[in-house]
């Protein structure tokens, strides 16, 4: 399989002298769900956000389908972002818009601003949105306002919005951290199946090890801004977990 995303020597420091990422080297293939695990503050969220440049990288290169995206800006950056879908921990839906409008937000990168202001979306996009609503089981919620939904429903809308972009890569930043265990499993199932159906790689950043082991094809463990484990879930041992999370009291 060919490499879709290649990160080499990536560093990042929000404050000079306090690096959050200390040289990350990772390659991602064109299939499969990768879970990035680690305790909070180890830079996994920063890593995911750097890929679609919500956070600017320090040194290093990030090559996405043959294009170095670490230094692009303006139109080039927008064109890159619309090829990468993103799912957020707190869903980040526009609360006062309807579910349908939130889904259509995923197409804004392809639509001229004038048409966006007039809400003139191509019929094709609207049909795609209805199909996705069927997929996430919210067919009857199209005209409900986003702030009337439950957490799990909101996150499904968040995923559908990302899928509306017809992305070539799906990023998810702690998508289950604000949800109850049962809903978390449903969200992970949705991310996994949509990655497979659309034949795109999925990067999920999470701290729930069991959930990661259950759904991931590959696990990347991070601590202190470095990658300390990279491999199949079955190869992840308690020793690795001690290294990633530190201490062992939490392991039963």
């Amino acid at each position: 399989m060919s490499v879709v995303l290649s990160i080499q020597g990536l560093t990042k420091a929000y404050k000079p002298g306090v690096p959050v990422l200390k040289g990350i080297d990772l390659d991602f293939d064109e299939r499969g769900l990768t879970a990035i695990i680690g305790s909070s503050g180890t830079g996994k969220s920063t890593l995911v956000r750097i890929i679609n440049r919500l956070v600017d990288p320090g040194d290093g290169t990030i090559v996405f389908k043959g294009e170095d995206l670490s230094r692009i800006h303006g139109r080039q950056l927008r064109e890159l972002r619309r090829r990468i879908g993103m799912v957020f921990q707190e869903y980040n839906l526009v609360e006062r818009l309807s579910v349908m409008e939130n889904l259509l937000c995923g197409r804004l990168g392809y639509l001229s601003p004038l048409k966006a202001w007039l809400r003139r979306f191509p019929q094709e996009d609207i049909e795609h949105a209805y199909q996705l609503l069927d997929v996430i089981g919210l067919s009857n919620f199209a005209n409900q306002r986003a702030d009337s939904l439950s957490g799990g429903q909101r996150q499904r809308v968040g995923i559908a919005r990302a899928l509306m972009q017809r992305p070539e890569l799906l990023l998810a930043d702690e998508p289950t951290s604000s949800l109850d265990p049962k809903t978390s499993v449903e969200i992970m199932e949705l991310l996994k199946s949509q990655g497979e159906d659309n034949k795109i790689p999925v990067l999920v950043n999470m701290h729930d090890v069991e959930l990661a082991k259950r759904f991931a094809d590959r696990i990347v463990g991070m601590t202190g801004g470095r990658v300390v484990f990279d491999g199949l879930p079955s190869r992840l041992t308690d020793d690795h977990l001690k290294l990633i999370y530190g201490g062992e009291g939490w392991l039963q």
Partner: peptide
């Protein structure tokens, strides 16, 4: 809320569309 703006920006929307879908509704 800047989170909602961030999400719209992440879809690659141009600034004017971010205003229409992220800022004005709020």
């Amino acid at each position: 809320s800047m989170k909602q703006i961030e999400a719209i920006r992440a879809t690659g929307a141009p600034f004017a569309s971010v205003v229409a879908f992220g800022v004005l509704p709020q």
